[in-house]
Design a protein around this nucleic acid. Structure first.
Length: 272
DNA sequence: AAATCTTACAACCGCCACCTA
DNA sequence: GTAGGTGGCGGTTGTAAGATT
């Protein structure tokens, strides 16, 4: 991991927001040469930033395959469930949400979900329930818990369903490993040479469409060669202009025996 | 229209674990 | 065993944009 062979750049480092030019330099360099040693990367790439800053910018913003935009209902529930079981382990939570970064999830939690948890009224009962088991306790957690126990919302039961599904799968399939119990998603665009030239676009049919024009969608598919309880979890881009969905640039590599979650996804495919 | 407040999220900071010399 | 460098992580702050007054 750590080496002492990296060159030490003695420069006064720029701070603050990244300019589009800096982004371009960093992206171009990494796509061409890889990041290698982060501390020496800024010098090689011609950036007046420190390596840490470059690393963060790449991981949180420039890295291909990142989902931008609002969190879906499913993502919210997964974050809540995992925060419930793991606490503020943002990197662990991020591993279960392909395309999302720990920083993004942390910000989302602090700005949205945490606020709901803190709400004294029973309106957000599902989040209040979550907070009681979290490593982070809140002033309202106990009273919220009382309210939640008296009338459990539909959201709460849905959340519990996902949690138990995750727990059972995790205990059976991955007990002895550190593998995530969510599917690993491989973005094929990450591997393509086209993407290296145009990291902000996705091929849709014959044309390259800017990612910001597309919505990310989730899909669960059953295939004939899989066991009864095994399904593919897919993600793709929905092309709003012609109301079509394109999966051409996103590939999928893992199974999801989470049959109970089907109703929570945007689509269910029976490909058999 | 201007001033102020609120919110979302990008970025920094400090700490820690790990590795190498 | 120890010092120094690096990468990773979580907490916190800063900033810009939108909402409100």
């Amino acid at each position: 991991m750590a080496t002492k062979t990296c060159e030490k750049p003695k420069l006064t480092h720029r701070k603050g927001l990244w300019s589009p030019e800096e982004d371009e330099r960093l992206r171009d360099y990494i796509l061409q040469y890889g990041h290698g040693c982060w501390s020496s990367l800024p010098t090689k790439a011609g950036l007046q930033r420190n390596g840490k800053s470059c690393r963060l910018r790449w991981i949180n913003y420039l890295r291909p395959g990142l989902k931008r935009g609002a969190f879906s209902e499913q993502e919210r529930e997964i974050i809540s469930a995992l925060h419930h079981s793991s606490g503020n382990k943002w990197s662990q939570i991020a591993q279960q949400l392909p395309g999302r970064t720990d920083n993004e999830i942390k910000n989302y939690w602090n700005s949205y979900l945490k606020k709901n948890v803190m709400k004294p009224e029973g309106k957000q009962a599902q989040s209040s329930t979550i907070s009681t088991k979290s490593t982070v306790s809140t002033p309202n957690s106990q009273e919220s818990n009382n309210e939640a126990s008296s009338s459990e919302s539909v959201k709460t039961s849905q959340l519990r369903r996902i949690e138990s599904s995750l727990e059972s799968h995790n205990s059976v399939a991955n007990r002895e490993s550190n593998q995530s119990y969510f599917p690993k998603i491989l973005f094929t665009e990450w591997l393509s040479s086209d993407h290296a030239q145009n990291p902000n676009t996705v091929q849709s049919g014959n044309q390259m469409v800017p990612k910001e024009n597309l919505n990310v969608v989730n899909i669960v598919s059953k295939h004939s060669h899989l066991n009864e309880e095994e399904h593919y979890f897919d993600s793709g881009y929905h092309h709003g202009l012609n109301n079509s969905t394109t999966y051409a640039n996103v590939g999928f590599v893992d199974f999801v025996p989470l049959a109970e979650m089907y109703s929570d996804f945007d689509m269910y495919n029976d490909v058999v």
